[in-house]
Amino acid sequence: MSSENILEVSHLKQYFPVKNGFKTVPLKAVDDISFSIKPGETLGLVGESGCGKTTVGRTLLRLYQPTAGRIVFDGDVLFDSEQKIDKKMQPYRKQMQMVFQDPYSSLNPRMTVEDIIGEPLDVHKLYSSKGERHDKIMELMETVGLNAEHATRYAHEFSGGQRQRIGIARALAVDPKFIVCDEPVSALDVSIQAQVVNMFEDLQKERGLSYLFIAHDLLVVQHISDRIAVMYLGHMMEIADAVELMDNPIHPYTQSLLSAVPIPDPNTARKSQRIILEGDVPSPLKMPSGCPFRTRCRYATEQCACEMPPFTDRGNGHMVACWNK
């Protein structure tokens, strides 16, 4: 196991029990996912709603108990279902943090900004005096571009972008190495999205952070990511360098996703062909046999219905799960 990766995930599974009448059926939110992130790298994670992106992020931070798989963070095995390793997360919470999707519900309405940002400091006892706590909070607020006078205010007095900044400051308070950004810009206006995305990039340069950047906006992901992973129905479909994936998507699902990205120039847009997928995403409770995408895939063959395609390297770390050559 190489330690050059800050995070390594292999064969991660996260099933949720769902009561279906009298029997309990597993909902396979995340099924057999493997990826790794290098220090200072951003891995973009895309996929349509309900494909398990958020679950991956939350399982990594152990907000959910993983069903199976292996998570290695910074050389330490945090979880391994085969070796029965299940480490206490408390010391690692200082190194792995999360920025939440909804800036409206992820901040406690009864707490001032100072207390929200200061809470991680309180929990991990990262200061020796009240003055030091205050100074640290002020420094964090400055880092994310909030005024010092905002400290005594409540979350509901801020705009979406400002709230997301508060959320980012809270994540940065413990000085983490790795941040899961769970659709941090989806709830924001486009103009503010750019500000926040740029801030993420600046912070990464300054602090050498690694991100798992979850989003469904391909353009944002392309902008910020070094590599991009595509998910469908809890399965990983394709991982490649951001540029490579955009220029040369191999998996039919990635191709259709990319063709759906709006093109700002109407002339080019008219010439380009959209690949329109037929039907809906199947219910994760009734997964199709074999490849999960085969029900909507143009190239689906009998082999696709029988067997799940392996996740193979097609050169230069471009990993694809598809029978189609």
């Binding site: 907000l63 999707q101 901040l107 009864r110």
Partner: peptide, 28 residues
């Protein structure tokens, strides 16, 4: 169900602190 409770868990807040600081003030 609110995300700020999840956020508190993510930070590493203990159960009692989560109840006292995050949940009870909101049903005050």
């Amino acid at each position: 169900q609110n995300e700020y409770v999840l956020a508190a868990k993510c930070i590493g807040t203990s159960t009692s602190r989560t109840i006292i600081k995050h949940i009870l003030p909101n049903c005050l």
